[in-house]
Amino acid sequence: MSDPNKLSARYTTMVVATISLIALTSVAFMVPVPYVRLQPGPVQDTLGPVKGGESMFTFGAKAKTYPTSGSLFFTTVRVGGPDAHLSIRAALAAYLTSDQAVVPKDLVYPDNETREQSDAESAAQMTGSQDSSRVAALRAAGYKVGERPSVVQVVKGGAAFGKLVAGDVFLDVDGTKVTTPDQVVKAVGTHHPGETVRLTVERRGESVDVPVVTRPDAKDKTVPRVGISIGVKYTYPFQVNNNVGTDVGGPSAGTMFALAIYDKLTPGELTGGKKIAGTGEIAPDGTVAPIGGVRQKMAGAANADATIFLVPAANCAEAADGDDDGLKLVRISNLKDAISSLEALAKNPDAKVPSCS
């Protein structure tokens, strides 16, 4: 016959162990993990109005525009901020939800990045996206867009600090005309550190001569530096205003911006009256680059009743890995691909176009 005292002790040990396990598990589920959750974000029609009723795109007086119909949605993803704390329970719940995802935080935010820094970077990416979409769309529509090398940023305390300002457009270096950023870099590179390079820039419509004493590169003392970042300033045939506002950031709306501009500047209607959504970062030459959160963006598009979704080619495998949410997934590598596919589908909904399946 068993000893009641031994049974009681064993029972007590099991109860204590069970309670401890439950407590530890509960605590573990409360402990933050270094991940962020991706969820479908809002979508917005680039052919429609923004807050206040103004069209997302408005054009200068010289532009000839045409009527459009249907919708060209850009899609977004809701992402926890760099200071957000995701518990194991929340991470597991997101992992088990079809339209959500959990990714390592350092894939989205660099170490020690603050929310302010993240917001500033996102805003800068949106500005770049708007510029690239204007250039790509105008060129696709047959307009000429000029390019001139310009100062994007001046390094504080650098050789050019207090002499050059962001927005200065380079006209010549040491008396030789320059028309591209590479030409500026190469011309400066002909000097030895400590020598003076003579820059002529256009500032507020006037030509300004700026002598700058070059300094040695921090890593290679033989390389001359003037302490600036150089980019391109575009010259447009007429004004193209993007009125999307500041609520959305990042570069991934670029392709849909470009399609809306193109649609308004050319005869015919790209959508064929349909609700079309998509994503993709766009370069000035029209190349479409991959983005993150494509599955979440697809879910957002489906929620907006879109029937076609434009997918950057490099995102196709991810987009096709799971439920298509009732969307026709069209693979695109550049703006020309997107335009030709939409034109074909507008004429014939069953037209064969590049797809992700």
Rank of each mutant, 00 (worst) to 15 (best):
P211D: 08
Q100T: 06
K186L: 12
S207R: 13
V212H: 03
Q100N: 05
V184K: 03
D174F: 11
L138Q: 03
Y143E: 08
A120E: 09
G167V: 13
F170E: 11
Y143Q: 08
D168V: 04
T97A: 13
D168G: 07
A141M: 02
Y143R: 01
S87A: 12
R148D: 04
K105S: 10
A166W: 02
A166F: 03
F170S: 13
A136Y: 08
P193N: 03
E116L: 13
E147Y: 01
P181S: 09
D131W: 12
E206V: 15
N112T: 11
V197T: 09
Q125T: 05
M126R: 06
K144N: 08
A141S: 06
F170H: 11
S87E: 11
G194V: 03
A160M: 11
V201S: 03
D106E: 12
K163C: 10
R198N: 15
V201C: 07
I88R: 11
K163Y: 13
V152D: 02
E195P: 07
V154E: 00
L164S: 04
L199Y: 03
R203Q: 06
T180E: 07
T200N: 06
T200G: 00
S150K: 00
V102Y: 01
Q100P: 01
S129M: 10
D182S: 10
Q117L: 10
Q100V: 07
V145S: 05
K144L: 07
A93P: 01
A123W: 03
L96I: 05
V173Q: 01
A124P: 07
S207Q: 14
T179D: 06
G175P: 05
P211Q: 11
S122W: 03
Y143K: 08
A187P: 07
